[in-house]
Every structure is written in structure tokens, then in C-alpha cells.
Amino acid sequence: MATDYDAPRKTDEDSSEESIEELKTRRHDKNSGKVDEDEAEAAESFELPGADLSHEELAVRVLPRQADEFTCSSCFLVHHRSQLANSKNGQLICRDCAA
């Protein structure tokens, strides 16, 4: 961007006065705080708590247990064998629950 070094420079007092005047004019402008947003589009993206989702179909493919996985007896999450912390009375515990 080119800069015109010959143009008169404004002092701090001049710029503050202009900004105060701009703020005063904006205060009286009723549309300055409004945002242009399509309400219908915005409403489609919101998920309300307790919304009726009975018409929605959920497709989940359940895989059988793999040889290198275990289910933690504390948090009941399936983890890889590398996350196994210890085993108490045949109960497998993950590293997160053992800590």
C-alpha cells in the first residue's frame, strides 16, 4: 500500500475528536447494532435440548471385540491393551482409572 508522506498529519487531539463525533453519530443510528443474518438459516443449525428426535434414524455398526482390546471394569470403556494398568481379581483396569 502506498503512503503519501506529503499529506498533512493529524495530531492525537484531532483523531480523538473525530472518533468521539463518530461515536455520537453511531449512537443515533438505530441499525448500527443489527447483524444481517437469515433467521431461518440460524434456527436450522440450533439443536434444542429435549427436542423430539423420534423421526431421526441412527445407523450404528457394532464391531465384535478385537483380540487386542479390553473393557475397563471401572469406567466400562473399551481400550487397547496398551492402556491396561493392572488386573485385580480378574477385573481389568485402564490407566486413567488406576491413576
Rank of each mutant, 00 (worst) to 15 (best):
F46E: 04
V78R: 14
E17W: 06
R9D: 05
P49Q: 07
V62R: 06
R27D: 02
A43C: 01
E18C: 06
T11R: 15
E21V: 05
A40V: 13
T25E: 15
D14F: 12
E18W: 09
N86K: 14
D52A: 07
D12W: 15
K24F: 03
N89V: 01
T11C: 11
F70R: 08
E13M: 06
L58T: 08
L77I: 10
A67P: 09
A85C: 02
E56I: 13
D96T: 10
L63Y: 09
S87E: 15
E22C: 06
L58S: 04
I20T: 08
S19K: 15
R27K: 13
R65G: 01
K10W: 08
A43Q: 07
M1S: 14
D14E: 15
C94P: 06
L58N: 04
S73T: 14
V62K: 08
T71E: 14
D68M: 05
S82F: 01
V78H: 04
K30V: 03
Q91L: 07
L23G: 12
S16K: 15
L92M: 08
D36W: 13
D68I: 03
F76D: 08
E37R: 15
S73N: 10
R61I: 02
D36P: 00
A98I: 00
E41R: 13
D96F: 06
K24M: 08
A7E: 11
E44N: 12
P64H: 03
K10N: 10
E21P: 00
A98F: 12
N86F: 13
D12F: 15
